[in-house]
């Protein structure tokens, strides 16, 4: 069988190759002193989780200390990404904002999954609802004006929505309709990417959903003359409501 033999061929070629040590990266053969950047005692990857996270935090873009700073950063990133970011004071405001979005965008049919916040949205909007939870026809989902989902977290550092097929109604709801609307709780706003990975590990342990991902702005492309166009294949609009 080619499978087994190629597997063994490749693994033994790797072991043979690695028997010869290679110089550490960051400086080349014959150079006595490494370049200015710090050399790490241990390889970063094999450090304990906590040490690795705190190191990364000192290199990545700064995020601030308070929830308000994170919210401001998410707002600023949203502006850059052309994400619509709406911070709601309470559930009453969330309802008002949803009604406004319905009117502004002329929604008649929405795709959504069951969940505390999405149920609230369905109730508030009073439109034709297309639930995906028990399976769905992709053609029907494509005809929805918007896909409304919950998420696992919001990441201030990059203005990203972290969601999985478990938290956001499967793999397709957040991507096929032309407008993706995310509803999140305030406590779901995380400062940075290291925190997002910690959350995934704590929340799912060894039982990860089969798809997890960061959504950062509406679908986009620069493939024509490096000019930004939104809505390449996924949603043309992304709205994040935080309550």
């Amino acid at each position: 069988m080619p499978t087994t033999s190629s597997r063994e061929t490749i693994l033994s070629a790797i072991r043979r190759a690695l028997a010869v040590p290679a110089p550490k990266p960051g400086h080349h053969a014959g150079e006595s002193e490494p370049q200015q950047e710090p050399q790490f005692q241990n390889t970063f990857s094999i450090l304990g989780q906590e040490a690795a996270t705190s190191q990364k935090r000192t290199w990545l873009p700064p995020v601030g200390e308070s929830w308000d700073a994170w919210a401001d950063l998410f707002a600023a990133n949203s502006l850059d990404l052309k994400t619509q970011w709406i911070l709601c004071a309470d559930e009453a405001e969330l309802k008002t904002q949803l009604q406004r979005l319905r009117a502004e965008n002329g929604w008649t049919k929405i795709g959504l999954h069951r969940g505390e916040l999405t149920d609230l949205a369905a109730e508030t909007l009073g439109l034709e609802n297309f639930y995906v939870d028990d399976g769905y026809d992709a053609h029907q989902l494509e005809k929805c004006d918007a896909g409304i989902t919950q998420c696992d977290a919001l990441v201030a550092q990059t203005g990203s929505v972290l969601s999985t097929n478990q938290s956001a109604g499967g793999r397709v709801l957040s991507i096929l309709p032309p407008h993706h609307v995310v509803i999140a709780r305030r406590e779901q706003l995380l400062p940075d990417l290291p925190a997002a990975f910690e959350l995934m590990q704590e929340k799912y342990g060894d039982n990860y959903p089969s798809l997890m991902g960061f959504i950062t702005g509406p679908s986009r492309t620069g493939d024509i003359e490096r000019i930004l166009v939104l809505g390449a294949h996924g949603p043309k609009k992304l709205t994040v409501l935080c309550v």
Binding site: T158, M212, I215
Partner: peptide, 8 residues
């Protein structure tokens, strides 16, 4: 800062 979709 991050591309539009990063999927695991």
């Amino acid at each position: 800062a991050l591309t539009g979709y990063n999927t695991l």
